[in-house]
Amino acid sequence: MNDLVARFRGVFTALATPFKGDAVDFSTFGALVERQIAAGIAGLVPVGTTGEAATLSDDEADRLIARTKELAAGRAMVMAGAGSNDTRKTIDKVKRAEKAGADALLIVTPYYNKPTQAGLIAHYSATAEATSLPIMLYSVPGRCGVEIAPETCATLMDLHPNIVAIKEAGGSAARITQLRRACGDKLIIHSGDDGLTLPFLSLGAIGVTSVVANVAPREMALLLEAWQAGDAARALALHELIAELTDGMFIESNPGPVKAALALANLAGPEMRLPLVSVSDFNREKLAGILNRFSAASAAFQEIR
C-alpha cells in the first residue's frame, strides 16, 4: 500500500485531447505528453472530461491510452478515464483501458441517471470486480448530479481492495475531513479542483488531478514538491502565482478555456467536438491577458527563488 500511495502522490494532469479537423491529432498529443513529463508531472490522465471522453470513439480512446503509456515509459503513472453512466459500458471501458496498458482507472459517478448511494455501491462493485487495476472514484456532483457519500466510499473500500482513491471535486474542503473520518488515512485523496489544491493538501490529500497543469505543469509540480518538502510558504507563493490562471481555466465549460490557452501558447489547436465549441472572442482575449501576466510572474518567481 505504501508503494501505491507513493505512485499517487503529486500532480496528475487531466490531459486535453487535441484535434485536427475530425481526427485526434496524435502528433500534437505526443508533444503535450512529453512536455508534461519533462516538467515533473507524476501522473497522466488520458480520456477524461478534459480529454472530451464523451465524444471519443472506443478506438480513439484505446489509442490515446496506449500512446500515453508508450510515451510515459515508466516515467509517470497512467490513470485512464473509464467511466460512463451505464455499468455495462463502464465495465467494457475498464477492460479496454486495462488492455491498452493503463496503470490505474479513474471512474466517474454515473451522470444523468442520478443513482442512489445503493446504486453507486452496486455500480462501483461491478466495475471493481471486472479489473485488478487500482481504481480512483471520481465525485463531481456539479457535472453528475450525485455525490459519493463518505460512508459509501468506506463501504466500497471495505468490499473491494482495488478501490483505493477518490478524486474529490465537490468544491468543499470540509469533504476531505468527512472522507478521512469515514475511511481513515488508507484512502488516497486527490483534489479535483485546482484552486483548492493547497487547502486539500493541508487536510490530508496527497495529490491533484489537474486541468491547469496542461498549461502550467512545472508550476503545479513545484507547488506539490514544496508542500511535500514541508515548505508551506513556498507552496502558498506558488498557489498565489497560479491562482488567476486557475480561475481562467473555468471562465467557460472545461475544456474550452484550457484548449484556448494551449492554442494561445502555440502548443495545440483550439478545436473541440460538438456540442462543445471554442470560447468566445471576449474570453479568448481575457485568457490572453491572463497568460501574459502569468508568464511574466512565473519568470520573476523563478529569478527570485
Rank of each mutant, 00 (worst) to 15 (best):
115 P>H: 11
157 M>R: 05
149 A>V: 00
108 V>W: 13
82 A>C: 13
134 P>E: 05
167 K>N: 00
99 K>H: 14
103 D>L: 01
117 Q>M: 01
129 E>D: 12
135 I>R: 04
102 A>F: 15
145 G>D: 07
116 T>M: 00
166 I>T: 04
95 K>I: 13
101 G>I: 08
166 I>V: 10
90 T>I: 13
143 R>G: 04
85 N>Q: 12
135 I>H: 00
78 V>R: 02
140 V>E: 00
107 I>L: 15
120 L>R: 07
142 G>E: 03
82 A>N: 06
78 V>Q: 10
150 P>M: 07
114 K>V: 14
165 A>Y: 00
87 T>C: 15
75 R>A: 14
109 T>N: 06
155 T>C: 05
159 L>D: 03
160 H>P: 06
140 V>M: 00
87 T>I: 12
73 A>R: 14
159 L>Q: 09
86 D>E: 12
139 S>Q: 03
117 Q>S: 04
149 A>K: 00
109 T>M: 07
153 C>F: 06
115 P>Q: 05
133 L>G: 02
118 A>D: 12
88 R>W: 07
75 R>N: 09
146 V>F: 03
115 P>W: 07
167 K>E: 03
142 G>H: 00
103 D>I: 08
93 K>Q: 15
145 G>F: 11
166 I>C: 01
116 T>C: 02
101 G>N: 11
150 P>T: 01
71 L>T: 08
121 I>D: 07
133 L>P: 12
147 E>R: 13
83 G>D: 00
134 P>R: 02
74 G>N: 09
146 V>P: 02
109 T>S: 14
99 K>A: 15
144 C>M: 09
124 Y>S: 05
158 D>N: 06
161 P>K: 06
139 S>K: 03
118 A>L: 11
103 D>S: 12
116 T>A: 05
167 K>P: 02
97 A>G: 14
148 I>C: 01
133 L>K: 10
86 D>K: 10
112 Y>R: 10
130 A>I: 07
